[in-house]
């Protein structure tokens, strides 16, 4: 309760005095900075697997953390960690990382032939939502330059249904259907090579 009171007063200060913005910033940053040990300074990961969370759309991050917290999205560790935060705290954390640039600093090893094939698949199946070669984070998470082992584990969980899109209340049924159709198309039409190609394509983006 004390936290909320202080965060609340900090927000008032932010609105009334630019000179006291540092205090408000540090409250949000104290919550968010604890993420950096695993996700990298300012949320940009140095890999090999933990995802970059900088530059993530604020609403998407809140929804994701809530889904972890409620057990609607599978994870290794994030379900356990998300349970430690209230909605208000998640909003502060999400706001903090949304304002940080998504760093693309790890030179991930990719296969040029797979990258080229991945680009073709991307144009057909992914581009509608993950715009600008996966750089856009306006409506959906950015995938360009995301850690490849992470993209792979999430993609495989989506394909297997372990990560069940039906549990994602933030998506309209139309969006859910489209994503599931495209995932099925990826597997049916392009198989294992197609999965590798898409991962290589996103991983190759600098």
């Amino acid at each position: 309760m004390r936290i909320k009171a202080i965060l609340g007063s900090a927000c008032v200060l932010l609105m009334t005095s630019g000179g006291l913005a540092l205090g408000a910033e540090m409250s949000a940053s104290l919550l968010a900075d604890t993420c950096n040990g695993c996700h990298g300074p300012d949320g940009t990961s140095y890999g090999p697997a933990s995802p970059t969370i900088a530059g993530t759309n604020k609403d998407y991050m809140v929804e994701t953390m809530q889904a972890f917290r409620d057990g609607k999205r599978p994870s290794t560790i994030m379900q356990r960690i998300a349970k430690g935060y209230s909605d208000d705290e998640l909003k502060l954390i999400a706001e903090y990382f949304a304002a940080k640039p998504f760093g693309r600093i790890v030179d991930q090893k990719t296969d040029p032939a797979l990258v080229a094939k991945g680009k073709e698949i991307y144009d057909n199946l992914c581009e509608d939502c993950h715009e600008k070669d996966g750089r856009s984070a306006e409506d959906y998470p950015a995938l360009a330059g995301q850690m490849m082992p992470y993209i792979e584990s999430e993609l495989r969980d989506l394909i297997s249904g372990t990560r069940n899109l039906e549990n994602n209340e933030a998506l309209s049924s139309k969006e859910r259907n489209k994503k599931q159709r495209n995932l099925k198309d990826l597997v049916d039409t392009h198989g294992e090579e197609g999965i590798a190609a898409v991962i290589n394509f996103f991983g190759s983006q600098k």
Binding site: G37, S45, Y46, G47, P48, T76, P149
Partner: peptide
């Protein structure tokens, strides 16, 4: 899951070093 946690352990290492 146990396998993925190795990848996240190595990421933990790289990121906490930088942090």
């Amino acid at each position: 899951q146990f396998k993925r946690e190795v990848g996240y352990a190595h990421s933990w290492y790289n990121n906490i070093r930088k942090d």
